[in-house]
Amino acid sequence: MKLGLVIDLDTCVGCHACAVACKQWNSSGMSGPLTDYKPYGDEPAGVWFNRIRHYEVDEYPNSKTINAPMSCMHCEDAACVTVCPTGASYKREEDGIVLIDQDKCMGCNYCAWACPYGARELDRESGTMKKCTLCVDRIYDDNLPESERQPACVLTCPSNARFYGDFDDPDSVVSQKVRERGGYSMMPEAGYQPTNKYLPPRQKPLVEQHAEKAASTEKPLSQIQRWIAQQLTRQA
């Protein structure tokens, strides 16, 4: 099995709901708590497993806002695991999930240096490294109904931009999405072979500029006439 996430950059609205759900679920999970420093102070900061950043791609008027949620990619060639001197970081044979044994970590930060995706964050309170667990304590929990055995971030996403599944199974939702929508890896040249994939925004037609231009060269009077005509047809 090769478990991971697919994130749809076309539908993600950048609401940070997944990050909040992640924090809520994992605070009491195997790597919890996700310590907050000075939560009510001027500069609240803390540990998150999932962060969303916002970008603008291309130039106006063809620009598009992209919201990019990023958590651990559960890389196939995970240098964060090989550099760890204590063996606290490990990748599970059976499903490819990369985890950190909180009882073994010595907080040397080396794995965070090795991760290109900023997925690992040191908890200054516990002195240990923490990261996305792929909600391993949810997805295998037999006490939950089958439909809820999914990561908290996936379940919570209001715009259905997150999918979870087995990339080794060609019929899984994640494999299908990647196939149909041209799912890709972030920073592939780093060579980590991230498992998580991103779906590119759908192509929208370029903004039609001719109509607007034509309108602006119209005489003011005919603009008003056109507006009235529009209003009338709308009433009808």
Partner: peptide
């Protein structure tokens, strides 16, 4: 180290880790 009490474990990943 943020958690030096586990520093003794650092000798066990000789095979893969330069640290």
């Amino acid at each position: 180290l943020a958690n030096p009490k586990n520093a003794w474990r650092a000798f066990f990943r000789f095979r893969t880790s330069w640290l």
